[in-house]
Design a binder for these strands. Structure first.
Lengths: 298, 298
DNA sequence: ATTCAAAACGTCCGAATCGTCCATTAGTTT
DNA sequence: AAACTAATGGACGATTCGGACGTTTTGAAT
């Protein structure tokens, strides 16, 4: 009678609480931790219970974000995380924002899913609330900062797979666009699907992109445009850049909130995407994975 | 000896601080050192907390690097790290930038030292090279991104389990200033010296700071001004904000490259600092550290 | 249905930590 | 100088923890 709940394995709980696996097994057997057992004797701990007990101070807590449901026991649905992030954001709960995003990553969700299905909707919601005057600027800033910090934390975790011979992608946000998050997520998503990515960050002039073509010879350049300061100048510079890239056979991917249809139709590009899902899909066609470079997602 | 990194045992902390195990146990029981306990009663000390307290000078400091596995056998003088970071930055070696900054933190250097003595000089050097045309924009962007990422990585490590009531500081960069690093470092430095800090990030309008006064009732507000878009508007809004803060008895600390003497002399503030060393020193006078576990000496 | 690798199981046992007591040391007072 | 107090840390037996081992379960792919 497996009820629909979120379960964690002994190893996960051990890591979350900062103790050894054997200790978790003992605690369960002694009734300190509630758990159910499968027919074969494997312990299934309810992550909600563990989180509750840890918060009550009865247990140490190393990183509770590791306790979120995994793809193994319950299909980790991005919607759950999106929901949770929305609640955390509107409630101005900075710690929950962090643990939700980090938890989503630990649950094995791909970077582009975290970006498109979890963070983007939540930030859009925040934007709407802000425009409607139901959310003060200060909260919007806190939330943004929390998201950026969480994603940088993921970046630090991601730093592991350093294998050579990966194609290079360079990107950033154009001059006048000061948003950090979108371009950072793009870099990480590309990283996650087998590319070497170089993020130039926000407010990067086209001259930097141009010199990147020669200096690093990337296979792909991405533009993440959340905001465009001066459309005419942007178009001008962009077109000139695009011609140079095209002459070298370098793909140019563009995306971002600022590129609505009215703008987009006037641009040339190799690929456009409303989100990172399209970007990574495109990147995979450029550089089809030999084996399976994705993170574990069993 | 699991040494998860986030937790340390009494023996490890004892060795790191150069005291006996019994003393550590007593300090924990007396609340001098924050710790969590396992179900079986074993103490788990957060290495971040220990490091923070040790840096505050409230604890003896024998060899902090023993608490942190990655730190190894490097004479930990700030100058060494500054040198290394300078070389890494000018050489566009992103991975070295990261390892130098993270290494400095692991070596037990205080956040304000890392900011003032290591990162700031390196970034100033980068700025000079850039102005002299010896460094392309793209490198300047890469270097900045690498530093930001590294500091965010430190932020993730800094998460502390100590819930003791700490005074609140709120800060950020004013509207028009899009630099992330300075304000982030300020937040972390304050965090590191016993404050609860809330970083509103770059490009924060004064209205947000004003509403922060009422909503969160901080004891300190910091402004990190790396760049000022419109001096007249800035002055105007700032003065109005300062009056409100003063009326509430809230300290206002200002700093940053943009506040040269010509600007500064026209401003009112509770405290000005060229770097974070001054900010943390000031913060400590506002909130002097509690009683010391060391022997009394007059 | 069968196969297979990853993960979890149970058990054992050395090592680490616990709480307590008490001798030693450092700093202060008489 | 002697007495006193406070803090320290070593030494116990008892308890808890966690790594290692070979075995079993699990889930997914064949």
């Amino acid at each position: 009678m497996p009820l629909s709940g979120t379960f964690a394995s002994t190893a996960q709980v051990a890591e979350a609480l900062g103790v050894g696996v054997t200790t978790i097994k003992r605690w369960v057997d002694e009734g300190i931790l509630p758990a159910q057992k499968t027919a074969g004797g494997h312990r299934k701990l309810s992550s909600a219970d563990v989180r509750r007990l840890a918060r009550e101070g009865r247990l140490p807590q190393a990183d509770l974000s590791r306790l979120f449901p995994t793809a193994r026991s319950t299909p980790a649905t991005p919607d759950d995380f999106r929901e949770r992030l929305g609640v955390a954001a509107l409630g101005d709960d900075v710690e929950s924002i962090r643990s939700t995003i980090v938890g989503a990553y630990h649950a094995g969700l791909a970077m582009e899913v975290i970006a498109d299905k979890i963070i983007a909707p939540a930030m859009a919601q925040v934007g709407r609330e802000w425009e409607a005057g139901r959310l003060a600027v200060i909260h919007e800033h806190r939330i943004t900062q929390a998201c950026v910090a969480a994603v940088f934390e993921l970046k630090a975790m991601q730093r592991s797979h350093a294998q050579a011979s990966r194609p290079l992608a360079i990107g950033g946000a154009p001059e006048g666009d000061h948003s950090t998050l979108a371009s950072l997520l793009a870099a990480m998503a590309l990283n996650d699907c087998g590319w070497e990515s170089m993020n130039l960050g926000p407010h990067t002039p086209f001259s930097a992109f141009r010199s990147a073509l020669d200096q690093f010879n990337p296979k792909l350049v991405w533009f993440s445009a959340t905001h465009i300061a001066d459309e005419a100048t942007f178009m001008n510079e962009y077109e000139s850049f695009y011609r140079e890239a095209q002459a070298r056979g370098i793909a140019v991917a563009v995306g971002g909130r600022a590129l609505q249809e009215s703008v987009r139709t006037k641009m040339n590009y190799t690929m456009f995407g409303d989100g990172l899902t399209q970007l990574t899909a495109f990147a995979r066609t450029l550089n089809p994975p030999a084996q399976s470079p994705r993170r574990r997602s069993k």
